[in-house]
C-alpha cells in the first residue's frame, strides 16, 4: 500500500502487480484452478437456449 504523504515515507508495497496488468490476478486464480484439475476455456461463448 502506498503512503500518500511523502513525509511518512513510501511504506512497503503499492498494490500493482509487478509484471504489469491487473489481469495478473486472474492469471493467478486460473493457474490455481488448473492445478486443482479444473478447466479454463477461452473463446467459449455460452448462449441462452430459448425454446
Amino acid at each position: 500500500m502506498i503512503r500518500a504523504n511523502p513525509f511518512k515515507g513510501g511504506t512497503s508495497e503499492f498494490a500493482y502487480p509487478d509484471n504489469g496488468g491487473y489481469d495478473s490476478i486472474s492469471h493467478v486464480l486460473s493457474d490455481y484452478i488448473l492445478l486443482k484439475n479444473g478447466e479454463v476455456d477461452t473463446q467459449q461463448s455460452v448462449k441462452k437456449n430459448y425454446c
Binding site: 496488468g21 489481469d23 492469471h27 484439475n37 478447466e39 479454463v40 477461452t42 473463446q43 467459449q44 455460452v46
Partner: peptide, 22 residues
C-alpha cells in the same frame, strides 16, 4: 476448486480478466 469440486470456466473472449484485461 479448493472445496474439491471440479470446475470448468467458459470465457467468450480470448483473454482472462474480463474488465481488467490488459
Amino acid at each position: 476448486s479448493t472445496e474439491g469440486h471440479k470446475v470448468r470456466v467458459l470465457e467468450k473472449s480470448s483473454k482472462l480478466g474480463g474488465r481488467t484485461a490488459s
